[in-house]
Design a protein around this nucleic acid. Structure first.
Lengths: 194, 194
DNA sequence: ATTACATCATAACAGTTGTTATGCTTCTAA
DNA sequence: TTAGAAGCATAACAACTGTTATGATGTAAT
């Protein structure tokens, strides 16, 4: 097992502790214990706690983006955008964990300007991805021509954020079908006339 | 100045520290310092830290609900629902602070089941309020008859949550007009035909 | 075989945390 | 006037924090 693999194991241990105990109670010792090792392992693979924490978050973001890209590969048109959004939602119970980590980080970033700025970059990145999708749809005349695409991209992000928040807090209020229905309604409102 | 007033002052000091430093760095000593006093004041008005923290959050929730009720008083129909939603949004820069506290708490609740349950109750409360508004609109035939009102209430909550998250992270991406536009689009989609 | 490095354990460090106890005022009611 | 409570300050407590240093392994290259 290589260096990067072991590093990932440490991050995944941190990931589990964050979900189970909360981000502010995710101490070096708790991570080491979750890993079944000592803190020496943790400090060996990560310069400090922040580097470890941010790496764990980056894994969550990357897997989600990869899932979105995978869903986009085989599809075209409105259906393609719709399934990209679906890929980001916590449709299955197992998807909720990643969103818990994400929300823990959002709250943890309040009062920490440099973490807020990192989130801004992530939002900008996903916004550009969605903007490109919307622009392609608009060029193909599949959605209305009078749309502010940046605003609509932000609206899609807000839609996903809002649904995911609802799922994490009240899972019984958002079945997979209901989540998909809300996204479907939202997206198909883009292609009808003003 | 009465007991309750002083108690509120302590909570407001905590409120300011949460926004400035983050929830996990909001210590008893930091709150006391923000208040210009000693920790003796804090412990005198609150049994422990959790009671203080939760009281501060409750103030945020109450002021928002009060603002929504106030906007509802003078209006009727679709316009009434729309302005209730507006009242919950961070339209002004000064409104962002309350949402920062809210988001800090959401993240802080990850891994703390009893805090999640408290959030569930809050969501249930606001959902019932919105459900009643939607039911009234449906009875007056102002919105479609085939809507699942519970789902639509959850959708409205998700809309506000998502927009507010976007505002806290990327304020420059959501002007007051854009926020209102998104809510307007969402709500007016309820009254057209399927 | 010896050197060097990667991996990990252990322990100590100084700082911060929530909580509690104690005591000092100031005010109020008997 | 006096007893007592309210309001607040101070200090101490043990527990926990991230970080760092040190040393013990094993492994691979010279």
């Amino acid at each position: 097992m290589g260096y990067d693999d072991r590093r990932l194991e440490v991050a995944q241990a941190a990931w589990r502790v964050i979900i189970r105990e909360g981000l502010d109670r995710t101490s070096m010792r708790a991570i080491a214990q979750e890993l079944g090792s000592s803190t020496g392992v943790v400090t060996h693979y990560f310069r400090d706690k922040e580097e470890l924490i941010l790496f764990a978050l980056e894994q969550v973001v990357e897997t989600t983006l990869k899932s979105m890209r995978f869903c986009a590969e085989t599809r075209q048109g409105i259906d393609r955008l719709e399934h990209m959004i679906f890929a980001a939602l916590p449709l299955q119970e197992s998807d909720r964990a990643d969103w818990k980590v994400w929300m823990a980080f959002l709250g943890y970033s309040i009062g920490r300007e440099h973490l807020i700025q990192q989130h801004q970059k992530r939002y900008t990145h996903i916004r550009q991805i969605l903007y490109q999708e919307l622009a392609d749809l608009q060029a193909a005349k599949l959605i209305r021509a009078d749309l502010d695409l940046t605003l609509e991209a932000n609206s899609l992000i807000a839609l996903v954020d809002g649904i995911a928040t609802g799922v994490v807090i009240c899972p019984e209020q958002f079945s997979a079908e209901q989540q998909q229905y809300l996204v479907h309604q939202h997206i198909h409102a883009l292609q009808t006339l003003p």
